[in-house]
Design a protein around this nucleic acid. Structure first.
Lengths: 251, 251
DNA sequence: TTACATTGCGTCAAAATAACACACATACCC
DNA sequence: GGGTATGTGTGTTATTTTGACGCAATGTAA
């Protein structure tokens, strides 16, 4: 991807980039999709540039799709980052040398980039991490064990998680993070993981079912070393409705 | 301002702009500060460009300060707009002709601009609308009577108001919109105006005082044709604390 | 068959919310 | 000065939501 851009700067909007915080849920962990490039020793968020003839939202969809093969997924813009020094020293000598970019073309990269942050919620099992090139490493990493990231990507990730936590009170979450059939305890674990706190089982059940977005199935989870929990699906229609109208009214 | 930029494109980040939705409160109306430029017949949000050596947040502060003379005010980034065609046709012939901009320099303007939206809450009486030049018109306009705006500025304004409404449940509002001393009914009017719905007087009082950000003064408002309402101030310290920690916890 | 872990359902007190009643203060009218 | 209109301060009550638990039921593993 970077190579294509280097060959054709003029097809991309200068000074603007997209960064995606892609969340997945697995093993009771909230995971983030991260990339390690060959030309440096740090991890980064999957990102991209904005083609001149594409909306920024579309460019974000492209990034997500390139990396996970997924479409039609929950993807939301949450903030834009534009400190002067944010990509100072980056796309510096190491990167430019690696790609053998001449100094003149390099200026395109060394200018300050304003990056637009998006976060996505995807089904861990359906989203298959996809390398941009053979030298790249792309991996799901537990959000609690995120290594050092380039630039201000840690800040971006933190802000994404913070936004997600707040939006948990305004919208239902789960449809995009869980498999089609799931149990209430699984859904609760998801909430607990995102919020990083324990919730009461019984109160959670009551609150979540009261929203009216769950369909209880005539089916139980098997192969569990205890009472088999019931399986549920989301009522897509009601889910979308609640997503649109919001949960808490407050005032 | 535009002229300065035209003379010195290279001092500003290409393709990025700032737009501010500046809210004030007066006569029980939520007002928005709008600008009418001489070279076109529509109104627009106050905005500006981003100096190469300035953070985007700083650039937003500059816009706000230029237009209201105010500093240290509530100013928050809420969304970034970057549809391909958003400034299509704008900064078009009319504008370029007006400023006698040569075609080559004009390209700087006719490219797609990604604009970062900020909204501000300011004290209507302290914020004095300030023209950018003598031909400009700048005015407080009731948000319910906003005329046709350029580009996607209406969309930006709507999104700002929508964000404000949601954030009303997460944070206290009023410190930046009301004079130092105010009455509970005035504060309630502010909430009602923002939310565009009636609230119960007595329940509002209970809820707002329970937050613990108000100081009741030993003073009453005078010159009212009814029982004189008590005056209050915000407890700045507690207010800031609640602003930081948020109101509703939800889950 | 029993022990164990975890689920499903229910209870109860406390807190928050919604709906409403009444007394009070000030200006204005007559 | 008495009555009226308007809008304020305070209180009451029923309802709903929340938080903190108890306990029986269920499936696996020993």
């Amino acid at each position: 991807m970077l190579k294509g851009i280097i060959l054709n700067n003029e097809n991309y909007q200068a000074g603007i980039s997209i960064d995606c915080v892609i969340f997945g849920f697995h093993d009771n962990q909230l995971k983030v999709l991260l990339i390690k490039t060959p030309y440096e020793n740090k991890w980064s968020l999957p990102g991209g540039f904005v083609p001149i003839h594409e909306d920024i939202d579309t460019a974000a969809v492209t990034v997500l799709n390139e990396r996970t093969g997924m479409q039609g997924i929950f993807l939301r813009q949450f903030a834009t980052f534009g400190r002067v020094k944010r990509n100072d020293r980056h796309f510096g000598k190491a990167v430019l040398d690696h790609f053998k970019i001449p100094e003149e073309a390099g200026k395109w990269f060394t200018q300050r980039f304003v990056t637009i942050g998006y976060y996505a919620l995807v089904d861990f099992l359906k989203a298959v991490p996809h390398k941009g090139n053979t030298q790249e490493i792309i991996e799901w990493i537990d959000h609690k064990e995120v290594p050092e990231l380039i630039l201000d990507h840690k800040e971006i990730l933190d802000k994404a998680l913070h936004t997600l936590r707040i939006e948990l009170n305004l919208m239902p979450v789960g449809y995009n993070l869980l498999p089609e059939k799931f149990t209430i305890p699984e859904l609760q674990k998801l909430y607990e993981t995102i919020l990083d706190k324990k919730l009461d089982r019984r109160n959670f059940l009551r609150k979540i079912t009261n929203i009216g977005i769950l369909n209880k199935l005539d089916e139980k989870k098997s192969n569990v070393a205890h009472k088999a929990p019931n399986l549920y699906t989301f009522d897509k229609e009601k889910y979308e409705e609640v997503l649109k109208n919001g949960l808490n009214q407050g005032w």
